[in-house]
Each structure stands twice: as C-alpha cells, then as structure tokens.
Design a binder for these strands. Structure first.
Length: 415
RNA sequence: GGAGAGGUGGCCGAGUGGUUGAAGGCGCACGCUUGGAAAGCGUGUAAACGGGAAACCGUUUCGAGGGUUCGAAUCCCUCUCUCUCCGCCA
C-alpha cells in the first residue's frame, strides 16, 4: 500500500510507474474521491468541535442544539465512511512501484539474465523426467493421490519422501546456523487481515484456499506461502531499531489453487495445490532493503551451489513481478528433461509496501517509521526434488545423493 | 462443551457518567551531576486522520461494532481475543 500523501503529491509519477507494471491507474477517480472524502472529514470535524464546546457547558439550554448537531454528524459520518471505503478499494489494489533498475516490460520476455552458475551435465544417455524416475517402486505416486485428493496432488513414498525431509532439514540448518535466520514453526491457517497485510487479499483471492470455521467474524485461509505468516509476525507492532534486522526461516506446506494455470505444467510435481517450501523473511530498516535483497539471494543461491546444481539468476521485469514487490530476483534451476531453466526461488524486496498494510513500524531517529520487508524462497522443496532427481540421475535410473545431503539421508549413496 | 476473569499509551498499571489523552511506574530522549559510568535529580515523551511551507492547529482513538445520554474508558447489547478451572481429546 502506498502513502496516500505521496500519491496526492506525485499523481503523475505514480500513474506512469504503475503503467510500467501494466496497471492503469485512473487518477481522476482517485482525485475526485479523495477530495470529496476530505471535504466530508472537515465538515464533520467542525461540527464535532461545535458539539464538544456545547457538551462541556452543562447548560441545559444547549442540550437541544447539541442533539441536533449529533444528528448532522451521524449523517455526514455515514457518507464519509462510504467515501473512505471507496477510496480504500482503489488504494488497496495498487501494486508496489518498481525500483529504477528494474527492466520495464510487459511480461517475462523482458526479464534480464544476471548470471549463470554451475555446469550443465552432458548425459551420454537420454535423461528421464522426474515423473519417469519416480515410477520406480512407485515412489512418486500421482494415481493414488488423485484418488484421495484430486489432480495436482502427489504422494511421495519411501526414499523420495525421505529426500523431501532431507532437503528441508539441510536447508533449514544452513539458513539458521550459517546465515542467522531464526527458525519459526507457524500456523498454516491465518485471518484475512494477515492475508491482506502481505498483499494476497483483496486482489488475489481466487488463488487462495479458504477454510470454514463455525464461529468467527474473520475469514480464514490456508497460507499460500510462509511469507504470509513470517512477515506478519511484526504486524501492528513497534520495534526498537536495535532489534532490526529480524530474519525468519520456516519450512511449511503451501496451498494454492493455481487458478488460471489450467493446462500449465500438468505433468509432474512442478505445479501442485500443496507443496513444501523453505521460506526466508527479513524485517529491516527500509533504506537497507536492497542490500538485504542481495544477501537473501546469496543465501538461496548457496543451497544450489552446495547441491552442485546448475542455475541462473534472473532480474524480473516490471511485468513479471509480484504485487507487493519493488524488485525481484528469480533463481532458475536447470531441468534436463525440459532442457531449460525453471524457477526454484523468488526473492523480493517489498520496501515499506507490506509494512503499511500490516501497520509494522520501528523507532527511527525521525520518529516512528514503517519497516522494510523482504521474502524469498530458500528454496521450493518440490521443485528442488525435481532438479535433484533429474540432474543426478544415472543411466540405470538410480539417483546419486550429493555429498552434503548424505548425512540427512541416513548415509545413503544412491536412491 | 460447562463455569469464571480480563483486554486502557512502547510496556506495566490506576481510573465506574462531565477539561481524563487519560494518575503512577517502567522504558526512551535530552539536561544537570560525575574523571567516566551507574545511581540520583530535572524536563520531555502516543498514534491515526485532516489543515498548513513550517511553527502549529483541529478531529478521532481506552479490544471491535452498535445503543443509551446534552456528554461514555466508565452504563446497556452483540461480537472478538486472552487467561484460569472443569470436561473431552492428539
């Protein structure tokens, strides 16, 4: 969410920057509503002032007058609240503005390759897809999963299930011990306010799984990513400057409807309704966001380096970035069966955009100010399984376990 | 599921109808004190919104919403959250 005062002052700038993100901001609407709303506010306030004076007088002759004013106030208040709601609706769907070094473009075609890492293995046989590899002993089982839960679910068995756990533990250990993230085990169901805070609501409701509770005034949702809970750990709080930065890591299942992606990645475990992800979140002074983004990217990158998987880093264009992001790097890992790189991590700085939605502040020299927030996958476990199976496969269909992972795999050499 | 207690400022905590934005304490900031620090003393210290270039001014806010009243942190209703006890349960 943007500072409405900034919006007022630099309407044209916002309009232009939002257009870079393919968002058409109808500034005339905004201006009209904003002015009307403020007019109502000042009318209301002057009446309230009059009423306040009358109420203090204890003079019975004023009681009638005061009552009349109360009625007027309530009328104007109602109108003002309606106007405010309409204004908020406009404000709440404005995406964050992209930083100046973000390439401008309509979609992923304008993304910028930053660098490639590692070497792509030259197989002397035709590499199998993870789906085929998983068929061995039925260790990746879509058939049973669809019987139980429908499409886009999977059952991992035996050594592949172990691999999922091993990768998760490996990543958590690195992020906590090497990079100083605090491990969090959060709830997987959150209130709508929390979903609003990180920007999943109101605009992307169709992608979320809602949970029914019997007695609750708040709607509840399954988290689509741990970013939602980890970032909101600081919602509605005031943090001392010496308590920053705060870095959190969590491994959770994530739940997404994947609405609008029918027919996309239907084969395999690349795109599921439920998947495991290790997520990194930083809460930091806003002016340090961009250096923190580089740091976070390095934390995610380190995992792939240790696992010796080839990957590339991409700077997303304005057209490909998420709603709350001001700058995003994707890490894409090499997938032999597809002969291309695919996304395995997305690291974003959100500036103060989410903090405004959450009411998360810190004490700075010049008074209280909104914190900066960042999030990144470190990494997506399901996709990492794909990459590992496919890149480490041998001709006989076995999978070589990378050295760093062996101790997490009960010293297994191969699957 | 049954019974009870409670949600007040950054935090703790007074306050049951009329200058209470709210005593007191802690914390924080500044000053004095000190060789320096601690302690001590003094002063200051909420947020949101609106107006203003600013100084500053105005309005709102005591869990949320509604009601009673000329006037509500205080009375009434609904909801919500937290805690305690009992029951049930992984």
């Amino acid at each position: 969410m943007h500072n409405i005062k900034d919006l007022r002052k630099n309407l044209d700038h916002f309009k232009k920057k939002l257009l870079d993100r393919n968002f058409v901001f109808k500034t005339e609407n905004f201006e009209k509503l904003d002015k009307y709303n403020r007019k109502l506010i000042s009318e209301k306030e002057s009446l309230e002032q009059k009423k306040g004076i009358l109420s203090k007088s204890k003079d019975k002759s004023n009681f009638e007058k005061s009552k009349k004013i109360s009625e007027d106030i309530s009328k104007i208040s109602k109108e003002q609240i309606t106007a405010q709601h309409k204004l908020n609706e406009l404000l709440h769907i404005l995406p964050n503005l992209a930083k100046d070094d973000v390439p401008i473009g309509k979609d992923e075609k304008s993304n910028k390759l930053i660098k490639k890492f590692g070497t792509i293995k030259d197989f002397d046989f035709k590499p199998k897809s993870h789906v085929d590899l998983g068929l061995k002993f039925n260790q990746i089982d879509f058939e049973t999963a669809s019987k139980l839960s429908g499409s886009r679910f999977v059952i991992l068995r035996n050594k592949i299930a172990l691999l999922e756990r091993a990768l998760t533990n490996f990543m958590l250990d690195i992020h906590t011990t090497r990079f100083g993230y605090m491990e969090i085990s959060p709830p997987l169901i959150v209130n709508e306010d929390v979903m609003f805070g990180t920007g999943q609501l109101p605009k992307f409701e169709e992608d979320q799984f809602e949970i029914k509770f019997e007695n609750s005034d708040q709607r509840k949702f399954l988290i689509p990513t741990a970013e939602v809970v980890l970032t909101n750990l600081v919602r509605k709080s005031l943090i001392n400057k010496d308590q920053l930065p705060q870095r959190f890591v969590s491994s959770t299942p994530c739940f997404r409807k994947e609405a609008g992606s029918y027919g996309k990645d239907t084969k395999g475990i690349f795109r599921q309704h439920q998947f495991h992800k290790v997520e990194l979140v930083s809460i930091i002074e806003p002016n340090k966001c961009l250096t923190e983004l580089e740091r976070m990217l390095n934390c995610a990158k380190y995992i792939l380096e240790k696992l010796e998987l080839p990957f590339q880093i991409i700077l997303l264009s304005t057209g490909d970035m998420g709603f709350s992001a001001e700058k995003t790097y994707d890490i894409e890992v090499w997938i032999p069966s597809e002969n291309k790189y695919r996304e395995i991590s997305s690291c974003s700085s959100c500036g103060t955009f989410q903090a405004r939605r959450m009411g998360a502040k810190y004490k700075s020299q010049n008074g209280n100010d909104f914190v900066g927030t960042l999030n990144g996958s470190g990494l997506a476990v399901g996709r990492l399984i794909i990459a590992l199976l496919e890149n480490n496969q041998n001709e006989d269909g076995s999978i070589t376990i990378p050295n760093v992972l062996k101790k997490y795999m009960n010293n297994l050499e191969k699957i």
